[in-house]
Design a protein around this nucleic acid. Structure first.
Length: 690
DNA sequence: GAGCACTGC
């Protein structure tokens, strides 16, 4: 490690390496075939992983946290330097304690200390905890602000917020004058919002010192990855904080194999035979389908493998799952049963399940990439990074020493990227470009930690120019329309719909539609009741397409007397619809503030024309073979199976709001339109569409 | 002929 980093304790952690071969007595012929040599594991490494905090008295606990020993050092560094980098493992207590150190050291006398978090739940729960530690009510000295919820008062000195909220604030106040200290927590997660904030706080520091405004202290906290990168960017020193750790034994597959699902199944039953029954297992997989199908296989095999009642209880965990189903894996099960949780990477950071002593990691994750050539998003399963592999491993050592089985070899892992590619390098940058221009910053001059790719930026500038949000040139300018659009927390295409809806007389309808489109899939599909669900959903279908279908659902939802029951009966996701309702309120408020008229109309033609005003690039024509060809990119695509048009009448010309690429291109959320309307709504298109 | 990882404003 570079000597410029001050280490409180040597960060080198001992690695053991011993050969390990699984010895199992196969209980079924099925499994035996594969046990012979293919899925043997070698013990690769062992390292300390932090435990969950012990549930003792809060005061005592704070003092036993590793961060407490470094209090003086941290305060000294912040006093001397404007920017301080703190690397730390989980469990150090930095998120709860550092703001309190700063408060007691007098940093919040005239302005606030703020701490950003990548996730809402984290911001809320940490704020509550710190309020409790300071024996104050939440919203008093300690408060939080997340979307739809502001729990702060004029007394608030420590404010927890999501990075998205701080970014929105910075558009209005680039110098961030409310704050004396800004702590950007979990910087290693590299969300787009955090990446933008890095540049914005740097700029605010410079401007404040130039204007003789009291300086802004910035604290960046991160896991140990990429610390050199951060150090160079912020031109500052790093401080190392130790975490509190339990050792986790790590086992690698001895040989690579193609079918990791099967390897995982074999490994699980090996664990089941050899590990104490109270050691619960967490399995990382890539998606809902994979999880549900493996869950069924495990249940089946568990029955075959035991004579009496089965002693494995399988739980599934992914974001689309209803809240009550998600909570099930938290409930303590019977003592003679092993809990097996099959999860996506939601269990990597967002959700911590107690009692997990074994982790099985498939080594893959689904990630979204923006293809700037075709202007589409691609979702594909890719290898995880080494940092991610360790994060998954750590989930076995939260409570006690654990074990992690990796369904990939040591040398396979050596070829993984060291850390996950920052989102800003993968995501569609259109919204980022507009946000920065709203702050009069051109992307080409912004001090990015990692700048988005040129071709992605060019595609974004072109797209914004097409929407009328900017005037694209050697120096691009934001237009008055672009300024209006930047006020909405939406993808610019959706903002465009809202800024043009009043003219088409259907603002209310567009507000509702955009709100539903902003939330996740509202239609619930379950394996066992799929036919019932399809039947229930058919009631909402509009012959015009998916957009009016979604609007039908939303309109009936807000009229329902018992919305929760209504959603359940109609196989709709209550959580998503409530979220949509909140978004709708927020968007309506913004629209009124911008002076837009909220009118309403049942004229379907103007509704569709309005859709075209934002999505004129997303038009596709039916081909002889039943597929579609997009007008702008000439890409071949199929109707997505979730569309009301799937397997039914196929309109000649359609507008789609999303194209996803998996095995082939799929058009999601489709509406029947006339090609001539596009030219009428967007005059400059004359030559763009045949 | 058959599909949607996870966040966030």
């Amino acid at each position: 490690m570079d000597s410029k980093y001050l280490l409180t304790k040597n960060s080198e952690i001992g690695f053991n390496s011993t050969n390990f071969a699984t010895k199992r007595k196969a209980e079924t012929v099925n499994l035996d075939m594969h046990v012979k040599n293919k899925f043997n594991y070698t013990l690769s490494t062992s390292r300390n992983i932090p435990p969950a905090s012990k549930r003792n008295c809060i005061g005592q606990q704070s003092k036993s946290l590793p961060v407490f020993n470094c209090r003086q050092r941290i305060l000294k560094e912040i006093e001397i330097n404007d920017t301080v980098l703190i690397m730390s493992e989980t469990g150090s207590g930095k998120t709860t304690q550092i703001p309190q150190f700063l408060l007691h050291a007098g940093y919040a006398k005239s302005s606030m200390i703020c701490i950003t978090q990548p996730r809402r739940v984290a911001a809320i729960t940490v704020a509550r905890r710190v309020a409790q530690e300071l024996s104050s009510n939440i919203g008093d000295i300690v408060g939080y602000t997340v979307r739809f919820e502001d729990v702060t008062t004029k007394n608030t000195k420590i404010r927890y917020l999501t990075d998205g909220v701080l970014l929105r604030e910075s558009i209005e106040d680039r110098l961030l004058l409310k704050y004396s200290v800004i702590i950007l927590d979990e910087a290693h997660e590299r969300t787009v919002n955090a990446d933008l904030l890095f540049g914005i706080v740097k700029e605010a520091q410079k401007e404040r010192s130039r204007k003789n405004i009291p300086n802004l202290k910035v604290v960046i906290t991160s896991a140990t990855m990429d610390i050199d990168h951060f150090g160079k960017y912020f031109k500052c020193k790093g401080l190392y904080l130790e975490g509190r750790t339990h050792p986790v034994r790590v086992m690698h597959a001895k040989e690579p194999h193609d079918d990791y699902v099967h390897a995982i199944l074999v490994t699980l039953f090996h664990i089941h035979r050899t590990e104490p029954i109270n050691h619960d297992v967490l399995i990382f997989l890539t998606g809902q389908d994979e999880i549900e199908s493996l869950a069924q296989q495990i249940r089946k095999l568990a029955k075959i493998n035991t004579n009496g009642p089965t002693n494995i209880r399988v739980y599934t965990l992914y974001a689309q799952l209803s809240h009550s189903m998600q909570l099930e894996c938290f409930l303590p099960g019977p003592s003679n049963m092993r809990k097996v949780v099959l999860a996506t990477n939601i269990a990597e950071t967002s959700i911590t399940i107690p009692g997990i002593r074994c982790v099985i990691d498939c080594g893959f994750v689904k990630e979204k990439f923006f293809n700037s050539v075709d202007g589409i998003d691609i979702l594909k399963a890719v290898r995880i990074s080494r940092a991610q592999a360790w994060q998954r491993t750590g989930r076995a050592g939260r409570d006690a020493p654990g074990v992690c089985y990796r369904a990939y070899t040591k040398s396979e892992m050596d070829s993984f990227l060291s850390s996950t590619q920052p989102e800003i390098l993968r995501a569609n940058p259109t919204s980022t470009v507009l946000q920065l221009l709203a702050m009069d910053i051109d992307c080409n001059n912004f001090d990015f930690l990692d700048a988005p790719l040129d071709e992605a930026l060019i595609s974004a500038y072109r797209s914004l120019d097409g929407l009328g949000a900017i005037e694209y040139g050697p120096i691009s300018h934001i237009t008055p329309l672009g300024r209006l659009m930047s006020q909405y927390p939406l993808d610019p295409k959706y903002s465009k719909l809202l800024t043009s809806a009043s003219k088409f007389g259907c603002m209310e309808e567009i507000l509702r539609l955009v709100s539903v489109l902003s939330s996740d899939n509202i239609f619930v599909s379950s394996n066992d009741k799929n036919e019932l669900a399809t039947l229930a959903h058919a009631k909402f279908h509009s012959k015009h397409g998916d957009h009016l279908t979604l609007l039908n659902v939303y309109n009936l939802f807000i009229k329902a007397e018992k919305p929760k029951v209504w959603c359940h009966d109609n196989f709709l996701n209550y959580r998503c619809l409530i979220y949509a309702r909140n978004v709708c309120r927020q968007l309506s408020e913004i629209s009124l503030r911008l002076g837009l008229t909220i009118n309403s109309s049942e004229n379907i033609e103007s509704f569709k024309k309005c859709l075209l005003s934002g999505f004129f690039e997303n038009v596709a024509i039916l081909q002889k073979d039943g597929s579609y060809l997009t007008c702008s990119g000439h890409l071949k695509a199929k109707m997505h199976p979730s569309s009301v048009f799937h397997l039914k009448y196929k309109p000649k010309c359609i507008l789609f709001t999303q194209m996803v690429q998996t095995d082939s291109n799929f058009l999601r959320q489709v509406t029947d339109v006339f090609i001539d309307w596009a030219k009428e709504v967007v005059p400059c298109l004359k030559n763009g569409i045949k």
